[in-house]
Amino acid sequence: KQVQVGDEKYTFDTPEEARKFAEKVAKEKNLKVTEKNGNFHVE
């Protein structure tokens, strides 16, 4: 599963790991997490 933050992409083995990372980054940057096709976008 992938997490996209701006132009950066991070790959994780499980959706749970990806979601945790996305939520942590979103909180730090005051952004929101959206899920698209099983991948997460922080925007």
Rank of each mutant, 00 (worst) to 15 (best):
K1W: 15
K1M: 13
K1Y: 15
K1N: 15
K1S: 15
Q2K: 07
Q2N: 10
Q2I: 15
Q2E: 12
Q2Y: 15
Q2A: 10
V3N: 01
V3W: 01
Q4C: 13
Q4G: 03
Q4R: 08
V5A: 03
V5I: 13
V5R: 02
V5E: 02
V5Q: 02
G6W: 06
G6N: 07
G6H: 07
D7W: 10
D7V: 09
D7A: 11
D7Y: 11
D7F: 10
E8P: 02
E8W: 11
E8Q: 14
E8F: 13
K9W: 15
K9V: 15
K9A: 09
K9P: 04
Y10F: 13
Y10K: 02
T11M: 13
T11V: 13
T11D: 10
T11L: 13
F12R: 00
D13I: 07
D13E: 11
D13L: 09
D13M: 08
T14R: 05
T14I: 04
T14L: 05
T14V: 04
T14E: 06
T14G: 05
P15K: 13
P15R: 15
E16H: 06
E16M: 06
E16T: 06
E17T: 04
E17A: 11
E17Y: 00
A18E: 01
A18M: 00
A18Y: 01
R19G: 03
R19E: 05
R19Y: 09
K20W: 10
K20I: 13
K20F: 10
F21R: 00
F21G: 00
F21Q: 01
F21H: 03
F21T: 01
A22L: 04
A22P: 00
A22Y: 04
E23N: 09
E23V: 07
K24Q: 12
K24G: 08
K24M: 12
K24P: 00
V25D: 02
V25L: 12
V25C: 10
V25Q: 06
V25Y: 09
A26H: 02
A26N: 03
A26T: 03
A26K: 02
K27T: 10
K27N: 11
K27G: 09
K27R: 11
K27C: 11
K27Q: 12
K27M: 12
E28T: 06
E28C: 08
E28N: 07
E28K: 06
E28D: 12
K29Q: 14
K29L: 15
K29E: 08
K29R: 13
N30E: 08
L31G: 14
L31F: 09
L31P: 03
L31D: 05
L31R: 05
L31C: 09
K32R: 10
K32Y: 10
K32T: 13
V33L: 09
V33F: 09
V33K: 02
T34E: 07
T34A: 06
T34L: 09
T34H: 10
E35H: 08
E35D: 07
K36F: 11
K36R: 13
K36A: 09
K36P: 03
K36M: 11
N37V: 03
N37Q: 07
G38Y: 03
G38I: 01
G38N: 06
G38M: 04
G38L: 03
N39L: 13
N39T: 14
N39V: 15
F40I: 08
F40Q: 02
F40N: 02
F40D: 03
F40M: 05
F40K: 02
H41K: 09
H41F: 15
H41E: 08
V42A: 04
V42E: 03
V42I: 10
V42F: 07
V42G: 03
V42T: 04
E43P: 05
E43H: 13
E43T: 13
